[in-house]
Measured scan of single mutants.
Amino acid sequence: GATAVSEWTEYKTADGKTYYYNNRTDESTWEKPQELK
C-alpha cells in the first residue's frame, strides 16, 4: 500500500511549546496527531 505523507507539520511557539498544524485542513492541535504516532 502507499504510504500517506503526513500533512502535519510540527511548530514551536515563542515560549517553546510544541504544536502541530495540518496544511490541508487548516487545523492545529496541541496533541500529537494519530498519523505521527
Rank of each mutant, 00 (worst) to 15 (best):
D15G: 07
T25R: 03
E7V: 07
D15P: 00
D15M: 05
D15K: 03
L36K: 04
T18D: 03
D15L: 04
E27V: 09
P33D: 02
K17Y: 08
L36E: 06
Y21Q: 04
V5G: 11
E31Q: 09
E27S: 06
T3M: 13
A14R: 07
Y19W: 13
T3D: 12
Y20D: 00
A14T: 09
A2M: 14
E7W: 09
K12R: 14
G1P: 14
E31M: 06
K37P: 10
L36Q: 05
W30R: 04
D15Q: 06
N23A: 15
P33L: 02
K37M: 15
T29H: 05
K17G: 05
A4H: 13
V5H: 12
R24L: 15
Y20P: 01
G1R: 07
V5Q: 12
K12A: 05
G16K: 01
E31T: 11
T18E: 04
G1Q: 13
Y19F: 10
A14L: 10
Y21G: 01
E10Q: 08
T29N: 03
L36W: 10
Y19E: 03
Y21D: 01
E10V: 10
L36N: 07
Y20Q: 00
T3L: 13
G16S: 01
T25V: 02
W8N: 00
N23V: 12
V5S: 13
K12Y: 09
E10S: 05
V5P: 12
K32L: 10
Y19K: 04
E35M: 05
R24M: 11
T13H: 04
S28D: 03
K12H: 09
E31G: 04
P33C: 04
E7M: 08
T9W: 07
Y11A: 06
Y19M: 08
V5K: 11
K37G: 15
T9V: 15
D15H: 04
T29I: 08
T29Y: 06
N23E: 11
N23G: 07
W30L: 09
E27W: 03
T13M: 06
P33F: 03
E35L: 05
E7Q: 08
Y21T: 04
K17E: 08
G1K: 07
K17F: 07
G16Q: 01
Y11N: 05
E27H: 04
T13I: 01
G1W: 14
W30M: 10
W8V: 01
Y11D: 02
N23K: 14
E10M: 09
T29R: 11
V5E: 12
R24K: 12
P33V: 03
W30V: 06
A14W: 08
A14E: 10
K17T: 09
Y11W: 07
V5T: 13
Y20R: 00
L36Y: 14
E27N: 03
T18N: 05
W8Q: 00
E27M: 07
T29G: 03
K17M: 09
E31K: 05
K37S: 15
G16Y: 01
W30Q: 06
